[in-house]
Simulated scan of single mutants.
Amino acid sequence: MSYTLDEKDGVLLFTLNRPARRNAINNDLMEAFKKVIHYVHTNKSVRFLVITGEGDQAFCSGGDLAEFHRLVTEEQAFGMLSKMGEILYDWATLPVPTIALINGAAVGGGCEIATACDFRIVSREARCGFIQGTLAITTGWGGATYLFERGLRHDHAMKMLVDAQTYDSGQLEDVGWASSVFDGDKLIALEQFIEFMRQINPGVHQAYKEIEIRKWAEKNLKQRVMEEIAQCSKLWESEAHAEAVGRFLSKNKK
């Protein structure tokens, strides 16, 4: 199975389970995201939603290019990108705190997923980054829009995007992207992070989430996300992107 879902003591743990593919997102996992979102909305016992990756190498490497490289035209790309963009918007606007428990590399779309969460708890050894530029495209699931909403200094956020490089955990903490950095067992780190949150009535958490969601509605967040996705779709059709993907797939076959 490409994912596991476990609820314990109010914590819903969603684990991407494709370690051989560095927990890359495919169509099956997109459907899994939808199921998790539905579960949160229909189970009032959930107080925190946590996403992590199986293994210790990768949180998520973004979209599975072995599957999605078959998408060639702008229209084809927009179909896939907007589907995940809609899912991430629904994720970002859930009524409970969302936490990315980053056990390993979070790159490309994986970095976008983490940025759409309220908090990012990062392993000391992890490297994360918006590397989409190395494939001659921009963020395609709304990641840049969420990044600019997360309170990072504008130049720090912009540099993460335009450099298209990975950052180590210290750098991620310095620029304000990482909420905390941990060593050792990720589940222990999670429990330490939410220790005080647990003591607060969940209605308080939901009220604060509603304030954020109202702000985003007033600032047309979803429309801006979809415009970001449309821009990426145009670049997806370019010869530069096709060549970059070809080089990437050839390198990974060796």
Rank of each mutant, 00 (worst) to 15 (best):
A207D: 04
V225P: 08
M226N: 09
W177H: 11
Q199L: 14
T134S: 06
V175Y: 02
V122T: 01
D174W: 08
T166K: 11
G142D: 06
N201P: 03
V204C: 05
G176F: 10
C232Q: 02
E210Q: 13
K222V: 08
V181R: 01
M160G: 07
A144Q: 09
Y208C: 10
Y167G: 01
Q231E: 12
N201A: 14
G170M: 04
D185P: 06
E218D: 15
P202L: 02
L235S: 11
E227D: 10
K159F: 09
I194S: 06
S169M: 00
L161P: 02
E218V: 12
G142Y: 06
R224Y: 08
Q223L: 12
H156A: 15
L161E: 00
I213W: 09
G143I: 04
L161F: 02
A126L: 08
E173A: 11
G133N: 00
S123C: 09
E125L: 10
G203Y: 01
F130S: 05
M197D: 14
T139K: 00
P202W: 02
V204P: 03
Y146E: 15
T134Q: 13
Q192P: 02
E212H: 10
T166R: 11
T139G: 09
I211G: 10
E149K: 14
D183E: 14
I211Y: 10
F182M: 02
A157I: 05
R120T: 12
V204D: 03
L147P: 11
R214K: 15
G143A: 07
T138K: 07
L135H: 00
D163V: 04
G133R: 04
R224N: 10
A157C: 08
K234M: 03
L152H: 12
G203T: 01
I229S: 03
N220G: 07
I211T: 13
L172R: 05
G142H: 07
P202S: 00
I131Q: 02
E125M: 05
N220F: 13
L190H: 03
Q206D: 03
E218R: 15
R150A: 11
Q165D: 13
